[in-house]
Simulated assay, not measured.
Amino acid sequence: MKPQTNILFVCLGNICRSPMAEYIMRHKIKQAHLEDRVSIDSAGTSGWHDGEDMHKDTKKQLAKHQIDHFGFISRKVRKQDWDYFDYIIAMDNQNLKDLERLFGKNTEKLFNVTSLCPDLAYDHIPDPWYTGNFDETYQLLDQCCDVMLEKLTR
């Protein structure tokens, strides 16, 4: 692994799915003692919630799994993210299309998180803002983050 790998998780509003992925992945990175080699962040394609904390049910889900959820501030994806991050990982196909419009296609660097787990029953992470099912979102992201960690340690 190179000295520093930077990962950005992206959803629409950056208050539910992408912060959940960010904090799950941070937790896994810490458990693997890789904090000095991997940095994790998240952003949204819309900017609707810029400056806000994550959704209260995202916090509850992370707390339920004993994952730190403090210090979060929502933000919109920026052009300069392309140069800084090694991986930009979308939560669904619409997020991916929005990101490809901004950055262009690059399947090595920019991809849908569910492509990490082709055996999932989903081709996207359902948005709990609409489904209300934060537990399902957690379970799917937890699996995808396990695979991402494997990818990083290979």
Rank of each mutant, 00 (worst) to 15 (best):
K2H: 02
K2W: 00
N6I: 00
I7W: 01
F9E: 04
F9L: 04
C11D: 15
G13C: 11
G13L: 09
I15H: 08
S18M: 06
P19F: 06
P19K: 05
A21I: 01
E22C: 11
Y23K: 13
M25V: 01
M25Q: 06
A32M: 03
E35W: 10
D36Q: 13
D36G: 05
D36W: 01
D36T: 10
S39P: 09
S39T: 12
S39F: 09
I40C: 14
I40A: 08
S42Y: 05
S42H: 08
S42R: 02
G44W: 10
G44S: 14
S46T: 14
G47W: 14
G47S: 12
G47T: 09
G47H: 13
W48H: 14
W48A: 13
H49A: 12
H49N: 15
D50P: 05
G51I: 03
D53M: 01
M54R: 08
H55T: 02
H55W: 08
K56M: 08
K56I: 09
D57C: 00
T58K: 04
K60M: 03
K60F: 05
A63M: 05
A63T: 11
K64W: 00
K64H: 09
H65T: 03
Q66L: 07
I67N: 12
I67H: 13
D68N: 15
F72W: 00
I73Q: 05
S74A: 14
R75C: 06
R75F: 03
K76Y: 10
V77K: 04
R78K: 15
R78F: 11
K79L: 15
K79M: 14
D81I: 02
D81F: 08
W82T: 00
D83N: 14
D83I: 00
Y84V: 08
F85L: 00
F85K: 03
D86P: 07
Y87R: 01
I88T: 05
I89D: 01
I89L: 04
A90T: 02
M91Q: 13
M91H: 09
Q94K: 04
N95T: 02
L96R: 14
K97S: 03
K97L: 02
R101A: 13
L102F: 07
F103K: 02
G104V: 00
N106A: 10
N106P: 15
E108P: 10
E108R: 05
L110Q: 06
N112G: 09
N112L: 14
N112Q: 07
S115W: 09
S115T: 13
L116R: 01
C117Y: 04
C117T: 15
C117G: 12
C117K: 10
D119M: 05
D119W: 06
Y122F: 15
Y122S: 13
Y122W: 15
Y122T: 08
H124G: 02
I125A: 08
I125S: 12
P128I: 03
T131K: 10
N133M: 09
N133Q: 11
N133E: 14
N133C: 10
F134M: 04
F134E: 12
D135P: 07
T137E: 06
T137K: 02
Y138G: 06
Y138V: 01
L141Y: 12
L141Q: 13
D142F: 01
D142R: 00
Q143R: 11
Q143E: 10
Q143V: 01
D146R: 11
V147I: 03
L149I: 01
L152K: 12
R154G: 08
